[in-house]
Structure formats: C-alpha cells, structure tokens
C-alpha cells in the first residue's frame, strides 16, 4: 500500500477564512474541548463518603494496595494509606471544583458533563435483593434478583434504571431513599396480593464466588442487610426479629440521607 493510498487526498491550498464567525467558531471549539477534558479528569466525586470507604469491597482494595506498596519497600500501614488518600482526594476534589466552576453553566444547559467511572472496580460484596411476602402467617419469597422462578414485578425491577436504583440502595448512604423505595414496593404488593399482611425487603450481601467456588458449587458466606418489614396494605414499618445471619448494625433504617446521585459507581 502506498502513502498516497492511505493519506487523505492532496490539499488544495486556500487562504484561511478571516471572518469574525470563523474566529468565534474556533473559540467555541477550544472552549468545548477544554470543558470536556477538564470534566473527564479522574475524580472520586460521589465516592467521597467515609461510610462507603468502610465497605468491605473498598477495604479489601486498600488492603491489596497496602500489600503492594509494602512489597515495593514502602513502609505504610492500611489506616495511614487510607488517611493519606482521603486527604489527597479532598484536595484534588477542591482544586477540580475550582477549575470546573466557569464551565458549570455549559455542563448544565448543554449536557457536556463528563463522568466515566464505569466498572472501575468489581464490587466483591454486592447485595442481591430479596422480597418476601407473608400470607396466612407464612413467609414466601416472591422476588430474588436474577432468579427466573421468583420474578414478581420483574418487568419493572429488572429494567436497567431500576437495577441502578437497587444496586445503589444496598450501600449504607441511601437510608431515606431506601425506605421510600420499600414503601413504594409495598404499595404494589398491597394491590397485587390483597390477602398478604406483610412484606419484607432485604439484601443478601455475600462475597462474589471465585472461579474455584463457582466450579464446585460452593456458596460464599453472607449476611442479610438493610432489612425492612412493612405491614400490608398500609406500609407501616414492623419491627420483626432479625433473621438469622442478619447484620444487627444494618437494619435498613439507618441514616436520613437520600444519597448523592453519583455516590455509587454505576455504569
């Protein structure tokens, strides 16, 4: 293949356009490129929550990096690394916000905002949503995420936008939104199951299986988190005894935070 075949056709020399419009166009393109590149700079953004940093997935990342740094001869312990990273992240976020401030109207009205933290780390301890219903004094499971046999409300709960909601609410910083979401699900259940007197929503938080565990069929241990039990049909919270394996520190009623839109990484 010759150069001529792979290059663009020859240019026909012409004078540069001189009009004001051409210069304004160039200024706009420079502005747009600057706005895009600055916003796309790596940043922890919504991940700046101490509670989120205490999640086991995040803690394991810190542990792995501490080990690596120690392997390279750096004398550092995990709490120190975490503290240093927190200080650095706070400073970085502050500087970034200053840089982006002049562009905010452009991001807001032209939709030029950039945020590409997609699958930056696998969530090793994700929550799988379970919904149970009580009828005649007996609990039955009516929804389990990705279980084709227990798919009540699946058309809505399995939609990608509802998956984002469900993914987020397994994190601790969404207490109020989680409670409101549970109340909405309870209202749907009250319509679909008029003979039920209670609904329970909770996540099974377990380590994702390694390839060996998946081959052998072993189930990694886990625990119930964020359990909410509501009376039907009115949706009043019930204080049920914690089920076996529940985390007593995480009863689904913690915090009054609605959670940042961007606090958990969603593709």
């Amino acid at each position: 293949m010759t150069d001529a075949a792979t290059a663009e056709p020859a240019r026909v020399p012409s004078p540069a356009p001189q009009g004001l419009r051409a210069h304004l166009r160039a200024a706009f393109v420079v502005f747009h490129v600057a706005a895009v590149l600055l916003a796309a700079m790596p940043a922890p953004d919504g991940g700046m929550k101490r509670a989120a940093w205490k999640d086991r997935t995040v803690q394991e990342e810190f542990a792995a990096w501490t080990g690596r740094l120690q392997g390279l001869g750096v004398e550092i312990e995990q709490p120190e690394l975490e503290e240093r990273l927190w200080t650095l992240a706070v400073a970085w976020q502050g500087g970034r916000q200053q840089l982006l401030r002049p562009f905010q109207p452009y991001y807001q009205y032209a939709g030029a905002w950039q945020s590409w933290r997609m699958f930056v780390a696998p969530h090793r301890y994700p929550g799988r949503l379970h919904i149970d219903l009580r009828r005649g004094g007996t609990w039955e499971t009516i929804y389990v995420a990705r279980d084709p046999d227990r798919g009540w409300l699946g058309r809505q709960l399995d939609h990608d936008r509802m998956r984002s909601v469900i993914f987020r609410y397994a994190w601790p910083q969404y207490g109020r939104a989680w409670r409101h979401w549970c109340a909405w699900v309870a209202a749907q259940a009250a319509t679909d199951f008029p003979d039920a007197d209670a609904i329970r929503l909770r996540y099974w938080k377990a380590r994702t299986p390694s390839p060996d565990e998946a081959r052998s069929g072993a189930e990694p241990p886990g625990q119930w988190i964020r359990t909410r039990t509501l009376a039907l049909p009115d949706g009043t919270p019930l204080h049920e005894p914690e089920p076996d394996g529940a985390d007593p520190a995480d009863n689904g009623d913690d915090g009054d935070d609605d959670g940042d839109d961007d606090a958990a990484e969603v593709p």
Binding site: A64, F119, V120, A121, P122, H123, A145, S164, F167, T208
Partner: peptide
Amino acid sequence: KVSSYWVPGGDFSALWYILQQPS
C-alpha cells in the same frame, strides 16, 4: 480503573467478578 483486580500485578480477575455482580 486502579483497582487491584484490573491493573498489572494482580490476577486480572476484574471481568470475572464484574460478571458475577447480580445487579
């Protein structure tokens, strides 16, 4: 993507574990 599951030096298991996420 600075997770130890993604970057060289780890076991490159990020995609395996991402595929296991129920969400």
